[in-house]
Design a protein around this nucleic acid. Structure first.
Lengths: 107, 107
DNA sequence: GGTTAAACTCTGAATTACAGAGTAAATATA
DNA sequence: TATATTTACTCTGTAATTCAGAGTTTAACC
């Protein structure tokens, strides 16, 4: 029998910009384009591309807010599938990294 | 003042194949091409490309073993810089993820 | 000495990542 | 009320990355 191989990491989530988007939204619930841009400190085009990728994977939804004041803004938030994928991704990460760094969750 | 933005993740290490290579070598010390291929379950060309990227970043060194039996093999191992970068990468990951998942090290 | 096999390496195509220019809708200004 | 400006994205083109499979080299086996 084979030694178990290292599990693969979700290639939508395991990317520098997208991991941070997912983490931010998981912690924050929802955010605007502007807030994400500030938090991540990347260009508009780059953020747009990564949001589109997450939307296409059904990990994110966007909802256009009617303008109460200022321009209408789009809110981005994780879908249940997105949150689940993110949690699973963290589990995989821990399996990959724990042999070395002893990472685990509390409780 | 600005809210602190999410720190950027090392884009050499934060990639599905390369994270696993680094983790495997950090745990294992060194490995052959063949061992890595088996552990990661990827094609030769793909593994080669990722090893080259890690070598180019000076995160890895390869040493050709003279053939005692069988063909000479190349051993891959992390450089001190590679190990340090990997540890820093893990720290950054924890900063990005801990607000949600309560990940930390023992001790 | 020729064939097979192992251990890589190279090439080219597809996909991804990115910056900056472009667009549309709201607000501010004249 | 026109027009200029700003905001909030979106589009386009380019560069870089990722990947599979074909190719190469060296050793072992017959």
């Amino acid at each position: 029998m084979d030694a178990p191989s290292l599990p693969d990491l979700d290639n939508v989530l395991h990317q520098p910009v997208r991991t941070r988007i997912a983490a931010f939204l998981a912690a924050r619930g929802e955010a605007t384009f502007k807030e994400l841009k500030k938090e991540l400190d990347i260009t508009d085009g780059n953020l747009d591309a990564h949001l589109k990728k997450l939307l296409a994977s059904d990990y994110l939804v966007s909802t256009k807010q009617p303008a109460t004041k200022g321009r209408p803004q789009t809110l981005f938030r994780l879908t249940p599938a997105g949150r689940e994928a993110f949690e699973e991704y963290i589990e995989t990460l821990k399996r990959v990294l724990s042999p070395i760094f002893n990472i685990h969750e509390d409780q």
